[in-house]
Amino acid sequence: MMNDTWQRLKSDRYGMGGLMVVAAFAFIAICVWSGLLGQGWSEVSGNRWESASASHWFGTNLLGQDIFQRTLFGTATAFEVGLIVTLCSTILGALLGALSGWYSNGWLDEVILWIKGVLDSIPFYLFAAAIAYALQGNTWAMHVAMIVTFWTTTARIIRGEVIRIKQREYIEAAQAIGLPDLLIIFRHVLPNTFHILLVQASIVFVAAINTEVILSFLGLGIQDGVSWGLMLAESSQEVLAGHFGNFIAAGSFLFILLMGFNLLADSLQDAVDTRRVIQ
């Protein structure tokens, strides 16, 4: 199945374009984590608001920090947040969604659905801001806020899929031979939702990056370090004075990465959904 999916994805030029963009940004993030790029993000290496030049490709900011270095570091920040939030919220969503679906209409399902309902009823940014505020000063406040809110969508989708899968004959057979529920869920049900999780993860990844930028812009995000959201917040004070370095650099990188991810996510959805392929 994975091979077929890959073949279908390969034949979608938009999807491949998106994949290349994401891969390029991932490469930058890996280089930053490895200490090869963007290490001078906080260093004052020039004068205030220098124009783009050979030594400062995107110019400098108010303090004389290199905007290019900060943009590269911001890529790593975006990927770090995206990866952690995607991984945690997808695992959480998959587990709770699977349990909810397997025991549908039981008390466990009721409890999980109630928690999801409560979390979904709170406006997202308000909720994220409240958690960030409550965990004030904690480096992981923003991550926690996103994980707590993002898992619900994944859980809802997985619940529906599990309800569908559990009607299948091979599941009934597994139950008939007396396999324990958890073993069936983890060995025979969840693996068959992988294609959905893959698509959902790509969507969460985009949402996480976007949210990080917004929360950082609002001052509720990154504590120590730099992110595109912080750069955009800085730019709000600079553009009126005619300095666009931060705005263009952070805005462009964010725009390109999100476009790439969206193209990839759309194509991935097409590639894993055989019904859409047939249509």
């Binding site: 906080s42 004052v44 120590d224 912080l230 004070q237």
Partner: peptide, 28 residues
């Protein structure tokens, strides 16, 4: 934004004198 920039500038001044960057932490 300005307060954060003031902090970053302060930390840079201290780094010039050998104070490790990781030992001056923002408390926001």
């Amino acid at each position: 934004v300005t307060e954060r920039q003031i902090f970053e500038q302060f930390r840079n001044f201290m780094m010039d004198a050998g104070y490790p960057s990781s030992k001056i932490r923002p408390m926001i």
